[in-house]
């Protein structure tokens, strides 16, 4: 009997299997030409350079306004692309594996279902990370170049108007603050965390959904509702003082417990306006995001473990 264990073969650990499935999902999505949307982002980032914004302030503020516009367009596009990719890509993977029967061959190997789910999610997160990294590099390059141009124009303007040295330095410092920097990287990290939460929500939906379209639509609906989560929580904490009944309070509580609070990610808007997001705030955001990703992945496992394939 062929009962020997071949050289090099030993039961791989959870991490090895998750990484293998994750790398495979990443390759699958990359070869489906998902990265082509990066070209669209490049066009948007460069186009935002040439926008003529209406002027409500003095000419000295025009440069910083252009830089804010570039950040706003770029981070907006990053949010849109990352959320759509997170939901659509995750919604696609499991139904496709079932339809193609590749799930049979994967789960017929010694692969626990949680490893399969975590691997698929990891693949999407890798895709999001690489996509956001590429977009971040492009945005930073465009901002860097434009900031240098704006600084030059402001120096010329100040010299022509005979501004005192302190005033010139103050203006230049304000412009530099609106340019690329660590707060901007924090905002990109927040975009990634939000997309990761959305991917884990799509993973959960896809474990009981019957189609990719259903998962995508419900996923985007959850994203929309998630922006009202904080309102629901506040309503509950206030104890229904407005006179609503216990049922309404319970519904608000359920909504607040099940759905992540996407208003936490409003720090991105603050960064666009030039604010510096404290590291502690960013840390709390990452922790909250991690909590939701783990929560939804475990919930996915709970359903998928019983799923008959």
């Amino acid at each position: 009997m062929n009962a020997h264990v071949p050289a090099g073969k030993r039961r791989g650990g959870h991490v090895v299997r998750i990484l293998t499935i994750g790398a495979h999902a990443f390759t699958q999505l990359a070869r489906m030409k998902v990265f082509h949307f990066l070209a669209l982002f490049a066009v948007l980032a460069i186009a935002s350079n040439f926008l003529n914004l209406p002027q409500h302030e003095g000419p000295e503020s025009a440069g910083a306004a252009v830089l804010r516009s570039i950040k706003s367009w770029s981070l907006g596009a990053m949010t849109l692309f990352s959320v759509v990719i997170a939901v659509a890509a995750t919604a696609l993977l499991i139904p496709k594996d079932i339809e193609d029967r590749t799930l049979y061959t994967i789960l017929a190997k010694p692969v626990p279902r949680i490893d399969y789910l975590a691997g698929r999610l990891l693949g999407v997160l890798l895709l999001l990370f690489v996509s956001l990294l590429a977009m971040d590099l492009l945005m930073t390059a465009v901002l860097q170049a434009r900031t240098a141009i704006v600084l030059g124009e402001q120096r010329d303007m100040a010299a022509a108007l005979g501004w005192p040295h302190d005033a010139v330095e103050s203006l230049l410092a304000e412009t530099r603050a609106a340019g690329p920097g660590w707060p901007l990287q924090g905002a990109v990290a927040a975009v990634f965390v939000r997309a990761a939460v959305m991917a884990s929500i799509a993973l959960l939906i896809s474990t009981f959904s019957t189609s990719t379209l259903f998962t995508t639509v419900v996923g985007l609906l959850v994203y929309f509702i998630g922006h009202f989560q904080a309102d629901a929580r506040d309503f509950w904490l206030q104890g229904g003082e407005a006179g609503e009944g216990a049922a309404a309070r319970l519904a608000s509580l359920a909504l607040a417990l099940v759905l992540p609070d996407f208003q936490l990610f409003n720090v991105i808007d603050a960064v666009i306006e030039g604010s510096v997001v404290p590291l502690a705030t960013l840390g709390r955001l990452v922790l909250a995001g991690g909590y939701y990703v783990v929560l939804f992945t475990l919930a996915s496992w709970f359903i998928f473990a019983e799923k008959e394939i």
Partner: peptide
């Protein structure tokens, strides 16, 4: 790539794979 993927899932790696 297909065989390498399934081999890794079964714990094979390196030269043996």
């Amino acid at each position: 790539e297909t065989l390498r993927f399934y081999g890794r899932l079964c714990g094979l790696r390196g030269r043996a794979l």
